[in-house]
Each structure stands twice: as C-alpha cells, then as structure tokens.
C-alpha cells in the first residue's frame, strides 16, 4: 500500500515509477516515500525487481515512466542532476566492487579526492578515520584481494562513510559472504542505524530487519505488495504472497 503523504522530511520519493527491460515490465507502478533517517528493508523472491529498484534510486538504471526525487532533486537523464544526488547517495554492492589495483586506503580516499576535490593528505586522514569506524584500520595498506569477504564489505561501507553519504543503499550486502562473516558486516550496519542515516537495504537477513528496520517492504513480480513495520509484516502478513514468502525464509 502506498505510504503517507510527502512532507519536508521526505528524502526519497518515487511516484508511479515503471521500468522495462526491452519488453519485460520489471518495475510496475512503484510508489514509495522514504523519510529522513528511516531504515527500510526490502525483501522478496529473486527476480522481483528489488535490486533494480534501488539501482534506479541512484541513477545506475534509468526508469522509463514516473518520477524519482532524491532530496528534492528530480532524476533525469542529465548528468548534472545525477551528479547532484550521487554525492549524497552511496551504494554497497553484493560483490563489494572495491578497486583491486588500489590499496584499501586509496580505495576509500578515491571518491573524496576525485569528486569532492579534497587534497590528498586530508582525504587519506579522513579515510583512516572511517576505516577505524569499521574496525579495519590496520589493513589500510593491503590490497582488496588480501582481505576476506567480510573485511572487503566493511571497507565498502567505509567508502560511503568517507563521502558523508546520508542515504545508503545496500544491495544484498551479505549474500556473497561466508556465514561466519555475515555477523561482522551486520554489526557495522546496525551501528550505522544508530546514527541519523537513511538506509534502504535489500536483504534476506530477517534478523537484521527485525532489529533495525522501521519498515519492511515486500516486493514480488515488480511491484510493492506490502509495506509495514517488521512486527506486523512478519506476524500478520496481509497477503497470501507475503505469507508464502515468509514461510520459505523464516
């Protein structure tokens, strides 16, 4: 069900968003409002369009109809608009996507240097500060391939923190990790939730959703089926689809 009215506190607003891949209708009439500081978990079966949805929010994918507004800026094809929001919105990927030919420190300092035009020394000290926040500062001179999956994902999160992203998008951040490393990444994400950061997380980790999420959104077949607090959604799902999905993963 579409949510609440938009007000000054709304950081992300999707109205009537549709997307097609060729002839395949992958996002159907998505309406979504996200308030500042809200933590949202999106779950659903594979192929339901969850990743596509959050990739549309930071402009990595283009939607065909409807409007997406991030912090008041409407997303269009123009590079200027995309550039305006990308500095504020950060994304953590399933496959970490660190730059393998740079050290961890250089990875984290890369965007501040080239996007925010920060001097090298300042960028590196900021990078070290944020690496310390995710407890990985002693690996600063290593290369991504020398780190475990969990460590690499924490570096990816540090990358976003260093850009002072107030909106963070997580695309299945723990799906590529071995089980013993999932906890360390989730711990970092839980710690982030304590700060005033807007988080939209696509994940199957329902424990995380229960602990941290203000809202859980269930998507299926390209549309939002249900959106509710974690308590309500997990215990009193409104639709059969939701119930079916929950029965498979819980």
């Amino acid at each position: 069900m579409p949510d609440t009215r938009a007000d000054a506190d709304t950081v992300i607003e999707l109205t009537g968003v549709n997307k097609w891949y060729g002839n395949f209708h992958v996002l159907k009439q998505i309406d979504l409002m996200v308030k500042r500081g809200e933590r949202i978990v999106i779950c659903g079966p594979s192929g339901s369009g969850k990743s596509t949805l959050i990739r549309c929010i930071n402009g990595l994918e283009r939607h065909q109809t409807g409007a997406i507004r991030v912090q008041g800026v409407k997303l269009t094809k123009r590079a200027k608009d995309l550039h305006a929001i990308r500095g504020q919105v950060g994304m953590v990927f399933q496959n970490f996507n660190l730059y393998p030919h740079m050290t961890i420190l250089e990875n984290v300092a890369f965007a501040p240097i080239w996007v925010n035009k920060m001097p090298l020394v300042k960028a590196q000290s900021q990078a070290m500060h944020h690496l310390a926040r995710v407890q990985i500062q002693d690996q600063a001179d290593k290369y991504p391939s020398q780190l475990s999956g969990g460590q690499q994902q924490r570096v990816a999160i540090a990358r976003l923190l260093c850009m002072n992203c107030r909106i963070m998008l997580f695309d299945e951040p723990t799906s590529a990790l071995d089980p013993e490393m999932i906890k360390e990444v989730l711990d970092v994400m839980v710690a982030l939730a304590a700060e005033d950061i807007t988080m939209i997380c696509v994940t199957h980790e329902m424990g995380f959703a229960r602990t941290v999420a203000d809202r859980v959104i269930f998507m299926d077949g390209g549309e939002i089926v249900e959106s509710n607090t974690p308590q309500e959604l997990f215990e009193h799902p409104r639709y059969d689809r939701t119930q079916l999905f929950l029965s498979q993963i819980l």
Partner: peptide
C-alpha cells in the same frame, strides 16, 4: 485474519 489474495498488476507494454 486469513490473508487476502493478492491481485498482481498486469504487465504493461513499454512506452
């Protein structure tokens, strides 16, 4: 309550 049956939206042709 018994959960409602979800009526999915039809897939539309692209613009």
């Amino acid at each position: 309550q018994m959960p409602l049956i979800f009526q999915p939206r039809p897939a539309l042709p692209p613009p």
